[in-house]
Design a protein around this nucleic acid. Sequence first.
RNA 1: GCCGCUAUCGUCUAGGGGACUAGGACGCCGGAUUCUCAGUCCGGAAACCGGGGUUCGAAUCCCCGUAGCGGUACCA
Length: 507
Amino acid sequence: MKSSSPYLVGRHMRGLWWKIWIDSQPRSSPRSIALASPPAVETCAPINMTSENPRLRFAPSPTGALHIGGARTALYNWLAARHEGGKLVLRIEDTDRERSIAENVEQILDAMRWLELDWDEGPISQAGRADSHAAALGRLLESGAAYRDAATAKDVEAWKAEHGTRRGYRGTPTEEPGAAVRLRVPDSGETVVEDLIRGPVSFPNTSYDDFVIARGDGTVLYNFAVAIDDAEMGITDVVRGDDHLSNTPKQLLVLAALGHEAPRYAHLPLLHGPDGKKLSKRHGAASVQELRDSGYLPAAVRNYLALLGWGTDDDTTLMPTEELVRRFRVADVGKSAAIFDERKLRWLNGRFMREMPLDEYTAAVARHLGRESDARLRAACEIAQEKAQTLDEVWPLIRFLFEPPVDDEKAWAKVMKADTGALLAAAAEALAAVEPFDPASIESGLAPLLERFEIKPGRLYQPIRVAITGSSVSPGIFESLSVLGREPALDRISTAVERLSASSADG
RNA sequence: GCCGCUAUCGUCUAGGGGACUAGGACGCCGGAUUCUCAGUCCGGAAACCGGGGUUCGAAUCCCCGUAGCGGUACCA
């Protein structure tokens, strides 16, 4: 953060986080009651940012699975809360009754748990707070800060056609009980969002409509509910996506009308898809579940997501979660949108996989494969650990230890030449004598064949590999033979020799 | 349309008036490690959106463009 900014001292300044400037010129219409004598500058008391009790919230709407953008927002909130020793509240923004689906809530919770992002309170249903919302709505109606207006969307459009496009819609109060409720927005002045990441951002009040805060039936809308909930739940820091920045003044206006203190705000740059557009489900944006199913590790995903929009001064890239918690500061987050790049996640994931203790690694593989975490799997994991970048890549490498060799024509054709039968037969003979049947002994048992046949190692090892795995790709050949075991290995080699001689007889 | 945000290698970023011949990471290319693949190690190519201004000096500050994105719902 530029130290030149008067608003941001250091990289995580604390101080006045918002203020609303409203010209003292009241509007001529009766609507000005609520703002009859607004101060020229209305400012909340500075919040002491060293305050011991920061409260953050992650507030997803259950209109779909949690995608990586939402996951990053959740992570940043979690990191900020843990870094500050504060509380994280999980709130489900389900005031849109048609698009909010119960099973999506479970999906979101499931995703949070998998990411190992725990929360201290909630999940709280926003819709479940309808009574509080209704009470606040009543107060605003009472004070005149809000009013009923019978205008439909079409009416608003017509009004705008008449009054020009630069002006926000101003309605006409009505007593009609079924009419929607709108908040009065000042006709002058501007509302300033003191954003922790961007500094002060000001919006002319005239650019906002008297926006609807409650439907005709009394149920409330997002920008109203969110302001009330944040205030009543004692949220001190709102960390959310950039797509909310333009709506923040509306929430500030609601807060001001209600006499509530506003939280601090930090708007994160959006995550874009490869096409540069805002990430959404119709993007096929990777959901957290998809990441899990693809074999990524939660810790790697956290590390990667943290780096999307945030970096360290010293270029550190690989960070265990504790380090993320220690170093992360919301104010250090960058301002521009980032694009999700799975290749870097793969690399990062590979690093985490290789650095895991074997038992942990085996457990992760077992979970991913839905298998028993037994001694054999552990042995398999041991020889495959350094080769896989994702959990998904492990099985193809160790499959031969649990199932018969795969049938890979190409691999066979490539290494099983006419004269390899003799080679394999000699290898089998050598292997039968190896004692103990461990990688080092196997290697020294096989080595003399290289000289005897005057061949390069590949000429011998690749046929053995194909014989025991069916594939031309596997962990190290000595390790593979050892874990497979002498008898199965000899069986497979002799089967290959038979097949070889049968085909040469044919041909 | 209106309001707002953003702009450094393909991607994620560092840098915040002189330390910039612009650093790191992924990816890419080449080499090494010669049992495959992967991994690892070494090397390489690769960027300050454009134009003005301020200044002795601008990637950095200001303005104007341009582009991208977001908001503008009785969605969240």
